[in-house]
């Protein structure tokens, strides 16, 4: 298996990572996601990592890259479902995923994305959570 399936859900793309990624797979994911964002004009990317038990600096960098690249193409990225042990380890490693939004689960991630995009679509509307994003 060399590719991770990407699901299109309305204006968003959803990726559920279910296997331990080796480097090739992770790099493919980065490429595939970015070209999907560009092709579909998606406004948000949800990456569900609740089944991932190890995130090292390589994997962390890929997540960061996806977020930065998507942002340039006007899409926000939310990483959802990180396991507690993974979060504790990443902090100790020194990787806090600056610039990547996070949410507890897919549902809350969607909400967050809708919020972000809603604000961007309608500048009149007041942002109700001023700057409580994760960057």
């Amino acid at each position: 298996m060399d590719r991770i399936p990407i699901l299109k859900m309305g204006p968003f793309l959803l990726v559920t990572i279910q296997v331990d990624l080796y480097d090739r797979l992770a790099l493919n994911l980065e490429n595939d996601l970015i070209s999907m964002v560009s092709k579909t004009g998606a406004r948000g990317v949800l990456i569900d990592i609740s089944a991932v038990s190890i995130v090292d600096s390589f994997m962390g960098r890929i997540l960061g890259n996806i977020a930065s690249m998507s942002r340039i193409m006007d899409a926000e990225t939310v990483v959802v479902g990180m396991q507690p042990a993974v979060a504790i380890t990443l902090v100790e490693l020194g990787l806090t995923l600056q610039g990547v939004y996070t949410a507890l689960d897919v549902e809350k991630g969607m909400e967050l994305l809708r919020d972000k995009i809603g604000v961007m679509n309608d500048p009149e509307e007041d942002e109700e959570e001023p700057d409580d994003s994760n960057d």
């Binding site: 979060a87 507890l104 689960d105 409580d132």
Partner: peptide, 13 residues
């Protein structure tokens, strides 16, 4: 700060 960062990574404030 570490505790706050880990909480954020999980998606909470």
């Amino acid at each position: 700060i570490k505790t706050v960062s880990a909480t954020r990574l999980m998606g909470a404030e």
